[in-house]
């Protein structure tokens, strides 16, 4: 899973310089002008948090937010007090301007405007994409990882893939299948983790040892 980009064009050139999809060190935002995009928990939580030490503007395509009601009221309170700004709109373009600042063009009901900031923090959720895994040299099938159906091992021994990320003939994207894949995979992984131990197959319904481990 990778973070959803705010838009497609030209954003890569700004990533990890002016654009961050996750925050590791919030001190870099101190006294800076920041645009936060999105309407979920991450967007609202960071708007509220960073408003303490930064000049924060929140941009979202509508006035309703899917974030927790408590964070939404906090944000609205900050807006009323003039501690943050809220813009209704969608970001369309990014460009570089002097002093390492960036300019964002956004649209609201076909009306275009610009905002100049130091940082853009888009929080739009996650997207199913392989990301860096695509470069690991594993055999792929249409952006999914090929596995065998005995061990759910990839083309590189000791790397396994289960769930929606894998592909094999007859693959069904079901939670049920995910559990089945994990059980078979675990049998093989056991050999890698404990090469000297014997794996004894047991059921939780009858094994006293497993029941003890589970506390039932």
């Amino acid at each position: 899973m990778i973070k959803l980009k705010v838009f497609r064009k030209n954003i890569e050139n700004f990533e990890n310089k002016n654009v961050f999809y996750a925050i590791r060190d919030k001190s870099i935002f101190k006294n800076k002008k920041i645009l936060i995009a999105g309407g979920g928990d991450s967007a609202l939580d960071w708007t509220n948090e960073l408003s303490k030490d930064s000049n924060v503007t929140l941009i979202h395509r509508r006035k309703e937010f899917r974030a927790a009601p408590d964070s939404v009221s906090k944000m609205q309170e900050l807006e009323t007090k003039g501690k943050i700004k809220f813009i209704k709109g969608q970001i369309k373009k990014i460009s570089k301007i002097q002093d390492s600042r960036i300019m964002l063009e956004y649209e609201n009901d076909d009306e275009k405007s610009n905002i100049e900031v130091d940082y853009l923090l888009p929080f739009f959720g996650l997207k199913m994409e392989l990301g860096p895994i695509a470069e690991w040299g594993l055999n792929l099938h249409e952006n999914l990882i090929k596995v065998d159906t005995e061990k759910f091992q990839t083309s590189t021994p000791s790397i396994f893939a289960i769930g929606d990320i894998n592909w094999y003939p007859g693959k069904l994207k079901l939670i049920l299948s995910g559990f089945h894949e994990s059980a078979l995979m675990a049998q093989e992984v056991f050999k890698y983790c404990f090469p000297d131990k014997k794996n004894i197959f047991r059921y939780t319904t009858s094994s006293k040892e497993l029941q003890k481990k589970l506390g039932v």
């Binding site: 309703e64 969608q90 959720g125």
Partner: peptide, 14 residues
């Protein structure tokens, strides 16, 4: 419904 409207927040060029 609200759910669909919320999910559209994650789409481009809405």
């Amino acid at each position: 419904d609200d759910e669909e409207e919320s999910m559209l927040d994650q789409a481009f060029d809405v």
